[in-house]
């Protein structure tokens, strides 16, 4: 995002917050228009359930309206929106049965004593195109992301999927920049490994026919 774009976004946000704090009802629609898709997409990616994501989106919008006077502008308004969305999603997730997390370490790369790669690494990066938008691939990707531990998943969704900057993610999650980077790196390693299994199998099948 360009600097001017960022500045404009910031100004739009600030004006909106002022309107909302002044009780201007039109600001309701503008807030919804600007943020409901982001709120819905993030909560859907965290919970993988349409009804839950709808509930959370409503709840978040309501919180924005009701708590607007507690927003002090110490962080960006959008960071505040993301934080409320995450909290609401986690509350919802906690109220449901939780599937046991698998350990991320099992899926990190392994090395021999000298620090060299131990497994055979196939380069499937050129062959994903034809597969990308099939339902099966989408399912595999959704499942892999779903298996990420919570801490890594949220960083991955905000930074790599939503495309926010490392600084912004660190503000939203109240993490240091190195912590954001290391979680994101671990998330990518984990997902790479998960997806490798799928694409390698596909490539070897293609080779046979």
């Amino acid at each position: 995002m360009s600097f001017t774009q960022q500045k404009e976004d910031r100004e739009i946000e600030e004006a909106l917050v002022r309107d909302l704090q002044a009780g201007n009802l039109d600001a309701y629609d503008k807030i919804a228009e600007l943020y409901q898709k982001k709120i819905y997409a993030l909560s859907f990616n965290l919970m993988r359930n349409q009804m839950d994501a709808q509930d959370v989106t409503q709840e978040v919008l309501l919180t924005l309206f009701r708590k607007i006077n507690t927003f002090q502008g110490k962080s960006a308004f959008s960071s505040w929106v993301y934080r409320i969305t995450l909290n609401a999603s986690y509350m919802k997730l906690r109220s449901k049965k939780k599937e046991p997390n698998i350990s991320i370490d099992e899926l990190l790369p392994s090395f021999n004593g000298a620090g060299f790669q131990q497994e055979k690494i196939q380069d499937w990066s050129e062959n994903t195109e034809s597969l990308l938008f099939t339902n099966e691939t989408r399912e595999v990707i959704n499942k892999a992301v779903g298996l990420l531990p919570e801490k890594e998943k949220v960083v991955f969704l905000l930074r790599d999927v939503e495309g926010l900057s490392t600084e912004k993610v660190s503000e939203i999650l109240d993490l240091t920049i190195p912590a954001v980077k290391s979680r994101l790196h671990r998330a990518r390693l984990f997902l790479r490994k998960k997806l490798s299994g799928y694409f390698e199998e596909y490539n070897s099948q293609k080779g046979e026919t």
Partner: peptide
């Protein structure tokens, strides 16, 4: 990163 982003 690319394919996960494009999908999600």
């Amino acid at each position: 990163t690319t394919i996960c982003r494009d999908t999600l």
